[in-house]
């Protein structure tokens, strides 16, 4: 299915990546021959049971964890070169904002870090960016004064501000309650649809994956591998109304059954 992408459009290319932990005796293979490509401006979700290595894959692409085998390239560069050029925007599971900095200073931080990597980037004005994330009133507030949802929005703005080539998001909404989560999810969708970037998005939520993604990568565990790649052929721009369509429900049913199959196979 990945063959449909034109080579010149490819942003991230993960080829035969293998990763294992532990010593010789208790060696656990977390990723086994994972191959995946993400086109420029494409939104790809990773979904799968816990222990399937989806967060590990994200860490490998982010350069936070070294693969034992295989290669990762980001716009033709190695992960290390990509980090040096500030091509990678990370949104961790928790907002991880610095409590001693205001929201504005937190979002401005990536611009001041590694300034050499700014060359050739269309840096965004942090104020404007925060405005469009609905945080214009909170510029001078401190993280502790904001709700969890607003903090996570600021963390996403922090990843967009330096115009990276790929955004890596590790279950960014998992700590929020369901209503808040949906609100943040739609906020991200709106912003992304008018600012297309390659995104690799780890999630536990099937509706979230469908609503946001162009493709859903379903992973299986023991060892962590790609079980199936599911195209999400739903029209864009999308909005809440999509939840109520038959196409959405059919796809949700399909993804859930595929997920169940993967989990049952693991149990045997």
């Amino acid at each position: 299915m990945t063959a449909t992408a034109h080579p010149e459009e490819i942003g991230v290319e993960v080829t035969n990546v293998t990763k294992s932990f532990g010593g010789d005796e208790a060696r656990v293979t977390v990723l086994n021959g994972v191959t995946l490509s993400i086109r420029k401006g494409e939104f790809v979700s990773l979904i799968g049971p816990s222990g399937c290595g989806k967060s590990t894959l994200l860490k490998v692409v982010a350069g936070l964890s070294e693969a034992n085998g295989g290669t990762v390239s980001i716009n033709g560069k190695s992960v290390r070169e990509a980090a040096r050029d500030k091509a990678i925007g990370l949104v961790p599971q928790s907002p991880a904002l610095l409590p001693w900095r205001t929201i504005l200073d937190n979002v401005s931080l990536p611009i001041s870090i590694n300034p050499r990597g700014n060359t050739g980037r269309r840096l965004r004005d942090p104020r404007e960016l925060l405005q469009s994330f609905g945080l214009g009133h909170a510029l001078d507030r401190y993280p502790a004064q904001l709700s969890g949802g607003m903090q996570q929005r600021a963390a996403i703005a922090r990843a967009f501000v330096f115009d990276p080539e790929i955004l890596l998001m590790d279950e960014p909404f998992s700590a929020l309650d369901e209503m808040n989560r949906d609100q943040q999810r739609m906020g991200l969708l709106d912003f992304w649809q008018s600012n297309r970037k390659s995104v690799l998005f780890v999630t536990h939520s099937v509706p979230e994956a469908i609503m946001l993604s162009d493709r859903i990568v379903l992973m299986a565990s023991h060892p962590g591998r790609i079980a199936e790649i599911i195209d999400v052929d739903l029209p864009r721009p999308r909005n809440e109304a999509l939840y109520a369509t038959d196409a959405f429900r059919d796809l949700e049913f399909y993804v859930r059954s595929a997920l169940r199959k993967v989990m049952e196979a693991a149990r045997v």
Binding site: L64, A96, L98, I113, G117
Partner: peptide
């Protein structure tokens, strides 16, 4: 140090000095 924040610094290719100045020292 907040590991998640450290991850953000690392993906930005922050130098050790930048990590110390902006993360470890105030933290």
């Amino acid at each position: 140090v907040d590991q998640k924040a450290l991850d953000v610094f690392k993906t930005l290719h922050a130098s050790r000095w930048e990590i110390f100045r902006d993360l470890r020292l105030p933290g």
